[in-house]
Each structure stands twice: as C-alpha cells, then as structure tokens.
C-alpha cells in the first residue's frame, strides 16, 4: 500500500460526489448515465484499494463483476435513450416526467 487508506477513501468519496452531482444537476439523459459511470468507478476504486490493503484478491473479483454489470447497464440504458429520443425527439429528462409513455 503506497498511500494511506484514508487518502484513498477521501479520493473515492470526492469522485463519487462528482458523479452524484452530474446525476443531480444535469438535464441531459446521457450526462446522467455518465454520472452513474463515475459513481461506479469510485466504488471500484474503494474495492481495489481495500484489496490492496488487506492483500485479499476478493475485492478485485468483485470489481470484475462490477465491470460486467456496468457494461450491461450502459448498453441497455443507451438503447433506452435512443428509443426515448425516437419517441419525443429530445434527451431532456423533463420530457419524461409522466408515466404514460
């Protein structure tokens, strides 16, 4: 472990905060998905750091599953963005605030 674990936690927390800000503030659907990506990457950073701290490989295995599920999530949600854009000709989240499609 080359740096103290606290520094790593602070770093991942800041990265998670930035991703959360992207989700909360931006109106673009694609930017919201990018924010989700950043948050998941912060979670992966914590897992890799904990794996390096305790010298256990399990955290890195969990990161592999995180990557697989993130890829699945991104592909489905971008397909949904394409579909929604085809219906309403916009990617603004305010256009999709009703249950009736």
């Amino acid at each position: 472990m080359i740096v103290p674990f606290h520094h790593l936690l602070v770093l991942a927390t800041l990265l998670f905060l930035l991703g959360l800000m992207a989700v909360l503030v931006r109106r673009n659907l694609i930017m919201i998905l990018i924010g989700v990506e950043i948050m998941l990457n912060a979670a992966g950073l914590v897992l890799v750091g904990a794996s390096a701290l305790w010298q256990q490989i399990d955290g890195q295995v969990l990161v592999i599953f995180l990557m697989a599920l993130t890829s699945a999530e991104v592909s489905i949600s971008l397909a949904m963005v394409v579909y929604l854009n085809r219906r309403k000709k916009t990617v603004d989240v305010r256009a999709f605030d009703e249950l009736r499609g």
Partner: peptide, 28 residues
Amino acid sequence: VYVGAVMVLFLFVVMMLDVNLAQLREGF
C-alpha cells in the same frame, strides 16, 4: 472495457442523436 467499448458506445449514441444543447443548459 471502459475506454475501448463503453466510451465508444457513449460517443456513438451522442453523435447519433441530434441534441439541442442550449435548451438543456437552462436548469444547470
């Protein structure tokens, strides 16, 4: 995976959709 596949997917969708940027900027 991310830089090679996911980012290409993002850029592909962004460039495929015709997004009106000024309208999306209002509520920031």
